[in-house]
Simulated assay, not measured.
Amino acid sequence: MKNWLSSFVRFSVDRIFRSVVCLICVLAIVGAIASPAYANLKDDRFDGNIFALYGGNGSLVPPKVDLKESLRLGKPAVIAFYIDDSYDCKLYTPVLNDVQAYYGKAVSIIPIAVDSLDLSTPKTNFNTDDEAYYYRGFVPQTVVLSPDRKVLFDLDGKPDFADLDAALRQIPGLSALAPNVKLRNPVTKQVNEVTP
């Protein structure tokens, strides 16, 4: 009887020991493979939604309205072509947030991920109501349209807020700017929230 009990205890201890060793090995392998997640503004790596990470405003994506709806409502539109893994596009996101802070709902801000466009379709198949009609192959690219489809601004690269503001001021009837909204520097470390 004593022999049976000691065999059972040895078997149980051995089984527990092997299970613990196996668990430790699995955790070590997973820990070695997994790297910490981090987002970096100064590279061309995919970090996630750039508007939430670097602009402090994930509400811009997906856009509330498309270009067709914005034009139907008689609102000017700012179309921003971007990709999530571009250094220049990451730096551009606070500019769009500033436009939203100054102009609010008077302007439709339409960020378009270039990856979502059907670029295999010839441009002649698009009409002026389609965002892809205005895309020229660069990111970031910003197009400002008046409610009557007139292109007021079209720039490849990161524009300054002053450039977009000058284009939007050409549109009659836009509300006055909020004077207490401060522009942000996109490369300084700060809490990225647009607050008046």
Results as ranks from 00 to 15, higher is better:
32 A>F: 15
42 K>E: 13
155 L>Y: 07
183 L>Q: 14
177 L>W: 00
185 N>R: 15
144 V>T: 03
25 C>M: 15
94 P>D: 11
145 L>M: 07
150 K>T: 11
38 Y>P: 11
25 C>K: 13
36 P>C: 04
118 D>P: 01
189 K>H: 14
120 S>Q: 10
60 L>E: 07
26 V>K: 12
117 L>K: 05
46 F>G: 07
141 Q>T: 01
95 V>N: 01
115 D>A: 10
142 T>R: 01
46 F>M: 10
172 P>I: 00
75 K>Q: 12
33 I>D: 05
115 D>H: 05
134 Y>S: 02
39 A>F: 02
158 K>L: 13
54 Y>S: 04
10 R>S: 09
71 L>C: 11
124 T>K: 13
138 F>A: 15
110 I>N: 08
50 I>E: 09
132 A>E: 03
42 K>H: 14
124 T>C: 06
103 Y>R: 02
91 L>N: 13
134 Y>G: 03
178 A>M: 11
157 G>D: 12
128 T>V: 12
42 K>R: 14
99 V>H: 02
108 S>R: 01
6 S>N: 06
12 S>D: 02
27 L>E: 08
121 T>E: 11
48 G>Y: 03
98 D>Q: 15
95 V>T: 10
169 R>P: 01
177 L>D: 00
155 L>N: 09
86 S>F: 02
9 V>Y: 01
139 V>T: 06
67 L>S: 00
136 R>A: 13
109 I>F: 09
15 R>A: 15
74 G>P: 00
118 D>I: 03
159 P>H: 03
61 V>M: 09
154 D>R: 02
179 P>R: 11
50 I>P: 09
167 A>L: 04
141 Q>V: 01
79 I>G: 05
22 C>G: 05
171 I>D: 04
39 A>N: 08
